[in-house]
Design a protein around this nucleic acid. Structure first.
Lengths: 203, 203
DNA sequence: CACGTATTAGCATCTGCTGCTAATCCAGTA
DNA sequence: TACTGGATTAGCAGCAGATGCTAATACGTG
């Protein structure tokens, strides 16, 4: 039936197809590759590829884990050490998704996110919000690098904290930032932040 | 058997369980809720809840979509209008995952991410990297707000662009930032950024 | 008691798989 | 040329998790 590719080539093809669509079923694979379903099964067996349902399950779990850690997580990166109100260290190993595909260079806002969330985590309050930040990206960071962010509270005036953050890769500074974080020490009960220009903007 | 809850209460319970674990099967649900599998099926039918396999598939798709848009996406938010090298507008509607669970206030780095990626997108070059930024968070942004970011290139000196970004919710400024972005106009072929302190740090 | 809602039960059927056995094709080689 | 072995295809039983349908109970209330 038509131009049939060699076995290793089909295997390569198979992997690619599964990469772009992990939910595809054996039957569909067979049709697209012009072989029988049985062949697909043998191929999967050989390549150690799980069945479609298992694949979907894994995708679901991995992706949700990622979403949790990147969006919902209290801190972007792993909190290594924290002294509330004083200093702390967090480590982030950026994945390829966080980088420009073209260059492998990690997008600045991921580096910012690590620093920002660390700065916020340092503040000893019910709720803390970033009010302002001045940051510098000193060197490009690449996917796979080990980003170590160190934060220190340099000043505190009432509810206003100044936090200095330095991020390093292999001991070399790649990012520096000054964050102004506001503690909202929420009276017991509901936290009200509603209308007021609560942070910055000279009340 | 034992203490059997009322039907509406069981439904509430059901929803909760599925929220915390969407992969759970009818059989398991039946066991945990102390009813028969058939009852679970009727319940799902009544509540319009799809089967476990369908549920996993949806979770997988949604989560990957989210990961794509938040981590891999060229621009965080939807690019509404862009004049390369001049100005542009992007819109982001932050979801609950982007906010502090406690207060519903969106984490600063998501607002930063929108602004940063917009600033980078404005630069008319093969590759562009953020070199520095000074930002202010003027008001808390809540999940569900409609964040409209407007960026304008205010200055250009060789490869260095200054981009001003203002983000609004309902016409009111909530964020302002100054970004310094470097264009790396990559000679055809590989983009080399390796060792050099290519952006910032006075070469 | 009768009626209606809720619950449970049973069975045929579907999809996407696994595990197993057997047949076929085809190329290289003794 | 006939034989051998890898690759491919075929067929069947069985499983898990479902749907769709029919029927039997339970239970509470007017």
């Amino acid at each position: 039936m038509g131009a049939r590719a060699s076995k290793p080539e089909r295997h390569r093809h198979l992997r690619e197809m599964l990469e772009s669509d992990p939910f595809i079923t054996d039957r569909e694979l067979a049709k697209k590759l012009g072989v029988s379903v049985q062949t697909i099964r043998l191929d999967r067996l050989e390549l150690g590829i799980p069945e479609a349902r298992e694949r979907t399950r894994r995708v679901a779990e991995e992706a949700t884990k990622k979403v949790r850690s990147v969006m919902t997580g209290e801190v972007i990166g792993d909190l290594v050490r924290v002294s509330l109100g004083q200093e702390g260290v967090s480590i982030l190993e950026p994945t390829a998704d966080m980088a420009f595909r073209r260059t492998g260079i990690v997008r600045g806002h991921h580096i910012f996110a690590q620093a920002n969330s660390l700065a916020v985590a340092l503040v000893d309050a019910e709720v803390a919000l970033t009010g302002a930040a001045t940051v510098r990206f000193l060197r490009p960071v690449r996917a796979g690098d080990r980003l170590v962010a160190t934060a220190r509270v340099t000043e505190r005036t009432g509810r206003r904290y100044h936090v200095n953050v330095v991020s390093q890769v292999a001991g070399e500074d790649v990012f520096r930032g000054e964050f102004v974080v506001f503690a909202l020490d929420s009276s017991p009960g509901e936290v009200r932040v509603e209308g007021g220009s609560l942070h910055e903007g000279r009340p």
